[in-house]
Amino acid sequence: MTSPADVPPDLYGRRARDPFWAAASAFFNGVQRVRSLRPPAVRPVRPVDRTLALVVQEMRREAADVVSLRLGAPDGRALPAWQPGGHLDVRLPSGRRRQYSLCGDPADRRSYRIAVRRLPGGGGGSREVHDTLTEGAALTAEEPRNAFPFLARDRYLFLAGGIGITPILPMVQAAERLGADWRLVYTGRTRASLAFLDELPAGRTEVRTDDEHGVPDCAALLAAAPADAAVYCCGPAPMIDAVRAAFVPGGPATLHYERFAPAPIVDGRPFQIELARTGAVLDVPADRSALDVIREKAPTVAYSCRQGFCGTCRVSLLAGDADRRHPSDPAPDSLLVCVSRASGGKLTLDL
């Protein structure tokens, strides 16, 4: 085999490439190019389990028909952080899944606090909490989520109705720590029905009860707010609707609200739902949700928020054209029966 030194130079004094080394170089360059054309290895995506195992550390009566629960990890480890306005998706021992606003201190990483008002005519979740849960009971929950974020502003007006104080309470305390100019109007039927009165900073909280002051005039409450205030409202649907109707958009003030119950259906059309597993066909009136009607036939159907956020009530859509009414319900092959409907005709569901 010749070496590069044995090959005579060309007219310019450059030595010709040895055929062996030229062939070897071409071979290895080709191998490298083939490797570069291979798609990169894709590791399988593993779903993140955000389930928390929790135990009821303390139960405390906060007002008539309201109890608070302090929840912590069984081994006392630190819990995921949360911000004012956050909530927990809690799975009760019965399997019911319910959403509860966090109303404790975000700086406390060893426990979460929620509060539950007993609703005799509800879906059974509040009765289960009040009647069967005890300290030491095991629960599971999803990590905190926030659909009602608290924004840093100079001025606030907080409007809380009844159990609507739960997301507002951490916001009030955060505004106090920020040194902001804030005011809270806390409404309810009676003082005995209002939870956490002893935790509200004095001097900026106005308590208005129906039995002492009458039903509050939401327009008058908004008129007293600073022009650039951030208005945070949480309470029963009639209160939120009244605040929304009285609020004048377009100025520096902003309105933020969270419902504990679904908004009324004002533009629906009647339609039918077929439950594919039984063949039952149900009539859904214009002013009722599909979920409400389905629950009468199948009481154990899963649901939680009833507003389209949590996805608990999603079922497979087998046939029909759905009228989707929430941004989180775009999938063509499934349906959130708490909010989505049909503009006439029939939907066939995998139920």
Rank of each mutant, 00 (worst) to 15 (best):
residue 2 T to P: 12
residue 4 P to R: 05
residue 6 D to L: 06
residue 8 P to L: 15
residue 12 Y to C: 11
residue 16 A to T: 08
residue 20 F to Q: 02
residue 22 A to E: 11
residue 28 F to T: 05
residue 30 G to I: 00
residue 30 G to C: 00
residue 31 V to T: 08
residue 49 D to C: 06
residue 55 V to M: 04
residue 55 V to D: 02
residue 56 V to D: 03
residue 56 V to G: 06
residue 59 M to L: 14
residue 64 A to Y: 05
residue 69 L to N: 03
residue 70 R to E: 11
residue 73 A to T: 11
residue 74 P to I: 08
residue 75 D to Y: 02
residue 76 G to V: 10
residue 81 A to N: 09
residue 82 W to C: 09
residue 84 P to S: 11
residue 97 R to T: 01
residue 110 R to Y: 15
residue 110 R to F: 15
residue 111 S to F: 04
residue 127 R to P: 11
residue 134 T to G: 15
residue 135 E to Q: 14
residue 148 F to L: 02
residue 158 F to V: 06
residue 158 F to W: 08
residue 172 V to D: 05
residue 173 Q to V: 03
residue 174 A to R: 14
residue 196 F to C: 01
residue 197 L to P: 05
residue 205 T to I: 05
residue 213 H to S: 11
residue 215 V to P: 10
residue 216 P to L: 02
residue 218 C to Y: 12
residue 220 A to M: 06
residue 220 A to N: 06
residue 222 L to M: 05
residue 225 A to G: 01
residue 231 V to Q: 07
residue 232 Y to P: 11
residue 233 C to H: 06
residue 246 A to C: 05
residue 256 H to V: 07
residue 263 A to F: 00
residue 269 R to G: 03
residue 279 G to D: 06
residue 281 V to E: 04
residue 284 V to R: 01
residue 288 R to E: 15
residue 298 A to K: 12
residue 327 P to L: 03
residue 332 P to E: 02
residue 333 D to N: 08
residue 335 L to H: 04
residue 336 L to A: 04
residue 339 V to Q: 07
residue 345 G to V: 08
residue 347 L to P: 12
